[in-house]
Design a protein around this nucleic acid. Sequence first.
DNA 1: ATGGCTTCATAGTGAAGA
Length: 258
Amino acid sequence: MKIATWNVNSLKVRLPHVLDWLAVHQPDVLCLQETKQEDANFPAAELAAAGYQTLFSGQKTYNGVAILSRLAGADTVTAIPGFTDAQKRVLATTIAGVRIVNVYVPNGQSVDSDKYQYKLGWLKALTAWLGEELARHPNLALLGDFNIAPEACDVHDPQAWEGQVLVSPPERDAFRSLRQLGLADSFRLFEQPEKSYSWWDYRMNSFRRNMGLRIDHILLSEALARHCTVCRIDAAPRKLERPSDHTPVVAEIDTNLD
DNA sequence: ATGGCTTCATAGTGAAGA
């Protein structure tokens, strides 16, 4: 099973890139974040023509998540149970026996903002819920834009970023708490090129200078991590005209071993 | 240098992203 995550920063603008990427990479599951459109406008027909079923939870202007898949999803939820949140940031479903949890973690803006407190509270609720989900679903993948660079090696200039939002110790503690539920950072299960990032600022020629952060992740439960054969970042879409500022992360799981 | 780009909502600018 080939699964992937991509913050597309507007599905309306990025649909041609998404369709091209699906045709080339043929994933079984692609989780999208920042679709930025209401459900009534979701391009379900175009994606169906490309061979993908769609689940989506969107809103006007901001946020919005979707799951594109070859096979149908079951037991779909669009929110963290018991956590009141007007922002559409969660979509979970079960595909071919694998629980897929797609998240768009709040950005946090800056460590002294209300949005940062919202981010930390949101992560706490996510972690509590994921503990329950893992008990129900041993085969679980948590994919998305986490808006957290977990380690210094995930940041192009750790000194310049020290203490900032996306790398602050409380955010990294929250990421560690997720891992301690029994979720492996699949990217780090394998040797990777140095200075591997998944997001580059649109400004300052950041991509050309590789001034990036690794903030998009695929976390796998122990049962899935054992059978994960590869995880990589595909930087190619970041080189296209009018790219998203994020690029896809892909993992493959050998589901024939059990 | 608290900017730089990009998107959206909107019809000249402002919010938000990371």
